[in-house]
Computed example of a mutant assay.
Amino acid sequence: MSYEYRHILVAVDLTKDSSRVLERALPIARRNDNAKISIMHTLEPLGFAYGGDIPMDLTSIQDQLDEHARERLAEVADPHGIPRENQHVVIGMPDSEIHRFSAEHGVDLIVVGSHGRHGFALLLGSTSTGVLHGAQCDVLAVRVGTEENSEE
């Protein structure tokens, strides 16, 4: 039985910690015969944020958000040589879209940032928790957002 990873999905939120999450995946890919890396950001549909009760067409705003997310994702991925065809911006709920992408593209490792929430914040859930609980492959949660991490 082989434990080599062939396709790694890095899920990012496009904050300043996104590079840290990607940088944790890169050496894993190198150690696994240069495994393919895909990087993904998920935009929640504007209709979800406003309950779908807005009497206007949000398509152009959603398109602008999509374009901005693609530009930001490229800023994170391009310096590390991640080809544009492996950079994905999708619309939907983050944990569901990460699971869908992983299943459709044969991902065997998901790398996601985690803020290490506890107590009440943990009860409310997080993307990393949702990814972990529904994943059909290994998940690496990279601790982000702490003072000691942000000083590096």
Results as ranks from 00 to 15, higher is better:
Arg100Ser: 10
Leu122Arg: 06
Ala69Arg: 14
Asn149Glu: 07
Met93Ala: 06
Arg100Glu: 10
Val21Cys: 00
Ile110Lys: 03
Ser2Ala: 11
Arg72Met: 09
Phe101Val: 01
Gly119Met: 03
Ile82Cys: 03
Ala11Asn: 02
Ile91Val: 14
Glu71Gln: 13
Thr146Asp: 06
His133Ser: 15
Pro55Glu: 13
Ser114Asn: 11
Pro94Gln: 13
Asp53Glu: 14
Asn149Val: 04
Ala121Pro: 03
Thr42Trp: 10
Glu4Ala: 15
Ile39Phe: 01
Pro55Ser: 11
Ala141Glu: 01
Leu122Ser: 04
Gln87Arg: 13
Ala69Met: 13
Leu26Trp: 07
Glu97Pro: 07
Ala49Leu: 14
Gly116Pro: 07
Arg100Gly: 06
Val139Phe: 00
Glu85Ile: 06
Leu9Asp: 05
Ala141Trp: 02
Ala135Gln: 03
Arg6Gln: 06
Val112Tyr: 03
Thr15Phe: 05
Asp13Thr: 07
His99Pro: 02
Leu132Ser: 05
His105Met: 04
Gly116Ile: 11
Leu43Val: 04
Tyr50Pro: 10
Ser19Val: 04
Arg70Ala: 15
Val12Phe: 01
Arg30Lys: 15
His88Ile: 10
Leu132Gly: 03
Val10Ser: 03
Ser96Ile: 08
Thr42Gly: 13
Asp53Ala: 15
Pro79Gln: 13
Thr15Ser: 13
Phe48His: 06
Leu123Val: 12
Val90Gln: 10
Leu73Tyr: 07
Ser114Ala: 13
His41Asn: 06
Ile98Pro: 07
Ser114Leu: 13
Phe120Leu: 15
Gln87Lys: 07
Val89Ser: 07
Pro83Lys: 02
Glu148Leu: 09
Ser128Trp: 05
Arg100Ala: 11
Leu109Tyr: 09
His99Val: 10
Thr59Ala: 15
Met40Glu: 05
His88Gln: 10
Ala29Pro: 12
Glu71Ser: 15
Pro83Thr: 01
Glu97Trp: 04
Glu4Ser: 15
Gly125Lys: 08
Ile28His: 14
His80Pro: 06
Ala141Phe: 01
